[in-house]
Design a protein around this nucleic acid. Structure first.
Lengths: 238, 238, 238, 238
DNA sequence: AATGAATGAGTGTTCATTCAT
DNA sequence: TATGAATGAACACTCATTCAT
């Protein structure tokens, strides 16, 4: 019987299982992202992964399994890659901004895969959809913690945390989903810095604003690039 | 030959064409929304619409056509239903808030169809995807006009209009996309009023804030319900 | 849902359904008989029947359905063709012998299909196997009635009817199953007449034996042919 | 090249070959009997036998080989187990009855395997089918010898030996093939004793009948149980 | 204009068989 | 000898599309 979240493999050697699954999933994520779940065939995945079709069924129960694990791979990337990017950062405002920047960067690296997650979650059987949603919620929590620390530290006024976190998440995802529209107008750095202007700055207390200003002076990347392109905000920053 | 945006029909009687297409598209939107594009078959659509499979091919070139027009149907609903809801409203702040409320209401009525639009746009052939994106942009413009009027009237400070409009759009869509998460925490009214707190209020000038306060006093629905949960705004409203 | 014994068709026109199913089943019986169930492919059946593979699935749920109805077709042939062969015959002994002769004749005409029934019943899902067994029992009853009449009329002594009927059935089937061995030694007529010597004659009362003798004098076919080829029995008959 | 009847093994150590083949064939007979040839996979056989799939191909040429030898294993069981059961018995009538009883007993122990032999012989390639038939004929000869001895000794009148032997064989096989029907009505012992009433007794000479009666008096098993259920024969026996 | 029977290319999946270790 | 991972041909089944009526 298939247990949700646990996908059985017919192969016993653990090391090999890990390797082959990775190999196949990388191919699957790529193809699913490019062409969608239903228009990607198992034999295309096999070709892309450099294995035979039969082999895929030694490592995955069925095509649905491949999708499930592909989505989990993407969602776990979010979850795993944000924390290291926050390491060493102490100031809550800085951590929040960096978390947003990190999230967007990761999305940028997985643009197609992010779109895939939006498109294809519903293609899973209901029971497995839940698993994917849980992964998503865990990522949200990372941002939520940053936001809370800002409020608790008095850097940000009281807001509807829950909803604001979702704005951050959507903002990050939007870089992938609406990339066709944004690409022409923003660099990723500018996109994020403008996002901070809209979704972080307004809720900062004076103390919080000072922290953000300090940060902008020190960092050359996303916070600064935000200052330039838009003349209005450049003046404000001065 | 198939022209983008123009889907040929083999039937000439214009009235009938309109009627039959509507009949088929309603069925298609329902089924596509429920089960997705690829898992819905032409014969299911035919059954749902009460016609034969052959007939569908007299009004649509192929299955892709049915999807294209289904998506257009949904996106045009957004575009058509917002303006009447703004009719009679003069004040820019009021119009902006109402536009957001209207958009969310419409999304709420077309929840599954909105998810469909997210999932399935990529299933279209590239050329036709563009058509759908244009429809989306036209809807965005409605919101953008409201936002601009606020800024032009001095009710809102300078912001990155373009990006803020996208926040409004995403916010509205999120009601459908993340409904599984929001449903348990917000009524639609509360969702919108909290959205105004996060995405409109922070950018208002004092003059704009006065307008919003007045509006909240007068209207019983979404703006008011917003006032309660957050203690800060409750005090302001008093 | 699939009801046992009733196999749904997607096609509504009753006349056509009958015709197409017959066409496909004739091909299926032939191929299944020749090569067995598992080694016959749907596309071979389609080719043999002169239709496309897809069409088969408009008239049968799956390959198993085709087998079920193939077997029923064969078993129903037994059931339907024996009674007309008994029509007009009054004497119980005559009816019994004729029933055996009829059964063997029919088996001879469906030799491969009879083998099929033996081989493939177990390939059916358990639930459907029962249906096939019921068909078999109905045929047995035809023989049983003949046997009973013989006993009731005092033409045959008391015997274990139930088991003797099975000897008759097995004897008839054996003509198909062991045809590779019998073919070289017996004509069908001789096979049956010898069968009567072994499985009918010994249980007849003197009155019954007189009836059989009369019959042998009158009929040129199976009863007589029995008498000739074997010199020993010819003498006995004299 | 594959020689009929001789199945090559890649392994040379004769002792080991014997052992491994036995191990694999026991697993194969079990699974083939349960689920049939085509629905049993090599890897199931390997698992059941506790070996790897690769190993099977070191002792058998292909899956067909495994079937051939499985069938031979079953048929040889018949051939080998009957003679020891006749040992020490001198009287021809007794030997005949005992052979029938032995055959049925063996069939009873190999019920599923007997069904397998019926179902699957045709799954073999034609040349190999012949081999299996020869095995069958050798078993028949055992019964035929018993029958001949009865006739030669004047215990049985002239009959069509060849055909009567086939009745005996079919009767024995039927215990497996129609077990679903017989199980509810007969014990094995009763089945055999009734079989003797139908297929042996009628052909006995007075001298033969006396022998049978004596036997019935002496033996507690199958011959006696036959005497009871049918009142007519009970009286005769007295 | 409308039907729905017919088509057949295309897909997921299985499994006998091979072969490097 | 023995293993079991890897292969890929083959098959059941689906469904968009066509077309005779």
């Amino acid at each position: 019987m298939k247990l949700p979240g646990h996908v059985a493999s017919l192969v016993t050697d653990t090391k090999l299982v890990e390797e082959r699954r990775g190999q196949i999933l990388r191919a699957a994520v790529k193809l699913f992202s490019d062409k969608g779940y239903y228009t990607t065939t198992i034999s295309q995945i096999a070709r892309e992964a450099g294995v035979s079709t039969g082999l895929i069924y030694q490592y995955f129960g069925d095509k649905d399994d491949v999708l499930l694990l592909s989505l989990k791979l993407v969602l776990e990337t979010y979850e795993k890659e944000i924390p290291p990017r926050l390491e060493g950062l102490k100031h809550p405002v800085e951590r929040l901004c960096m978390a947003l920047w990190a999230y967007c960067t990761i999305v940028d690296g997985l643009r197609d895969a992010t779109v895939l997650a939006y498109r294809s979650t519903k293609s899973l059987r209901a029971e497995r959809r839940t698993l994917v949603k849980q992964d998503e919620l865990r990522t949200n929590r990372l941002l939520q913690d940053c936001l809370r620390a800002c409020i608790a530290g008095g850097y940000m006024r009281q807001v509807n945390e829950y909803l604001l976190v979702y704005q951050y998440v959507n903002f990050s995802h939007a870089w992938a989903l609406k990339n066709w529209a944004f690409r022409a107008r923003f660099s990723l750095g500018k996109y994020v810095s403008e996002g901070i202007v809209l979704l972080v700055e307004p809720f900062l207390t004076p103390k919080g604003r000072r922290a953000l200003a300090g940060m902008r002076r020190r960092t050359a990347n996303f916070t600064r690039s935000a200052a330039r392109p838009n003349p209005a905000s450049r003046r404000r920053a001065a």
